[in-house]
Design a protein around this nucleic acid. Structure first.
Length: 493
RNA sequence: GGCCCGUUGGUCAAGUGGUCAAGACGGAGGCCUCUCACGCCUCAAACGGGAGUUCGACUCUCCCACGGGUCACCA
């Protein structure tokens, strides 16, 4: 065989640095579990000052979904999980798309056959029935074909696959960073297919070959691969390759028994964005689903991506599945929203405000200021501020408020006093309005709430509003405010 | 079903043989207050079960239960 080829491939492999890879297959969107795996993978590389690689696993021709690759790129890009090597930017161990590496896998599969760790199998493709070929894998006659017999079938043009030859005796042990050492009986392992009939590798084989050839030091992936890890080790050993660190991550669950999935309408990263969540909040929350800080920072919950890159440690990864809780994401999002600079918040809130407030006279920044501490998601905004555009129909019962001691009668009296007082104002701003109304309450010997309640109700036409009477009046402007207050007073006749 | 993994309040979780078993979300109550929020304070709420080991187990061992994963020419 082409020994030089293998030598050359080995020579390309970068050594000495941590190298991780995110290797999705383009079969759908980025669900939260994928995002978390990508995040952890990126963090491990960054924390170690290593290299983060993007590789596309597209060996299943039939499951390709158009647009999936773009969504993955876009999601990683928006999240700031930038890769150092990948299909789009190249790198020393490319190509980074498995179908472009096609020829490679066959060579390595045949090398394995030479080493006695794999064999040609000419059996029929396994059917739908569980019975398959009528014998246990270990009894497959192909397992013990002589070289001559194989040669004969090959030259006869018989279709074949190459299978891993798993020892039927003994045990195999592998080590996972979070699960520790796991040992299984070899006889429970299947002679899995390495090279498919179409010449393309299976995931299980391509992974091992590529991870080795790309110099991956830490393999981060979902725990669903835990049970195939022993077979990977056997492969590495047969090749004589160094086994990477395994970091298996337990799944992100929708509830006690179901993983997050598109099927059940569970949100993808892009769905969450569309639902009004900030990228930073999503990442922060997702990071904590399955990982927690240790030591002095054990109680810290708020982490920026760069902070995570400084403190993320493998020891904090948990073994048990975590249920995705939207209510807690809401909380993180609210914290991030509140932590924004007012100008920045106003800018991101503007489109949502403008969804329901079309009137150009309304000061968006002022509205945003009222909103910043009052919304958990950006999508909460439109319905909260619709009254600025148009006074809603409302019932006079709104003027009645027990806690403020406001009644229909008191409201009449308060509005009668407030309207002329406000009309007399020379400067229409929050400060003057506030001073005027406070003075009025004092003058009439009533509690602030008794006066403020009807003013706010008449100005907004809603029981609950972001901001109080003063702020709302200031934003509405003199003319609109007085018009609304008078209309409210009319209703009370 | 075989094999593998997991199991601390409703949820995320700290904890690594001796703690009144952290903290956060959510819930309840209160304070603040021109409504609602924000902020602040308080409260309720947990080691799946059973055997061991030990002076002493959430922490170690075994068994069971429950949950998950995997047994594809899918990844």
């Amino acid at each position: 065989m082409d020994k030089q080829f293998f030598v050359d491939m080995e020579a390309r492999i970068p050594k000495g640095k941590v190298r991780t890879r995110f290797a999705p297959s383009p079969t759908g969107y980025m669900h939260v579990g994928n995002l978390r795996t990508a995040l952890y993978t990126w963090l491990i590389a960054r924390r170690a000052g290593g290299t983060f690689i993007f590789r596309l696993e597209d060996t299943d021709q039939s499951r390709q979904v158009e647009g999936a690759t773009e969504i993955i790129y876009r999601t990683l890009g928006e999240c700031g999980l930038v890769h150092d090597e990948g299909p789009d930017i190249g790198g020393p161990v490319g190509p980074y798309i498995q179908t472009q590496r096609r020829d490679l896998y066959g060579k390595y599969a045949k090398l394995l056959v030479e080493k006695g760790a794999a064999y040609y199998c000419f059996c029929e493709k396994q059917g739908d029935e569980e019975e398959s070929a009528g014998f246990e894998r270990a009894e497959d006659p192909c397992r013990n074909l002589s070289a001559a017999e194989v040669e004969e079938k090959l030259s006869a043009g018989l279709p074949y696959v190459i299978r891993q030859k798993v020892p039927q005796e003994g045990t195999t042990t592998f080590r996972d960073v979070s699960y520790g050492e796991i040992t299984v009986e070899n006889k429970t392992l299947d002679d899995q297919v390495l090279l498919k009939r179409d010449g393309l590798p299976t995931y299980n084989f391509a992974n091992v070959v590529d991870d080795h050839l790309m110099g991956i030091t830490h393999v981060v992936r979902g725990s669903e691969y835990l049970s195939s890890a022993p077979k990977y080790n056997l492969l590495y050993e047969a090749f004589g390759w160094e086994i990477p660190e395994y970091v298996h991550c337990s799944p992100v669950m929708r509830d006690q028994q179901h993983k997050m999935s598109k099927r059940h309408g569970d949100p993808s990263y892009e769905d969450l964005r569309a639902q009004g969540y900030l990228t930073e909040a999503i990442l922060n929350y997702v990071a904590l689903l399955g990982w927690s800080p240790k030591g002095e920072i054990a109680e810290q919950e708020i982490f920026s991506l760069s902070e995570l890159a400084e403190v993320f440690d493998l020891a904090g990864i948990s073994k048990s599945p975590a249920i995705f809780d939207l209510a807690k994401l809401d909380h993180f999002n609210a914290l991030y929203l509140r932590a924004m600079e007012p100008e920045a918040f106003a800018k991101t809130a503007e489109p949502y405000i403008r969804q329901s407030v079309k009137n150009p006279a309304i000061d968006v920044a002022a509205v945003a200021a009222l909103l910043q501490a009052r919304c958990e998601k950006l999508t909460d905004i439109p319905e909260k501020v619709d009254f600025f555009d148009a006074l809603p129909e409302y019932d006079t019962e709104l003027f009645v408020h027990k806690k403020s001691k406001s009644s229909i009668e008191s409201s009449r009296e308060m509005l009668d006093a407030a309207i002329p007082a406000l009309e007399a104002l020379e400067v229409w701003d929050a400060e003057s309005i506030h001073a005027t109304l406070m003075a009025l309450a004092e003058e009439k010997q009533v509690k602030n709430a008794l006066l403020m309640w009807p003013v706010r109700i008449a100005a907004a036409g809603k029981a609950v509003t972001p901001g109080g009477a003063v702020e709302i009046c200031a934003i509405l402007g003199r003319e609109e405010t007085l018009c609304r207050l008078k209309a409210g007073r009319e209703k009370l006749n």
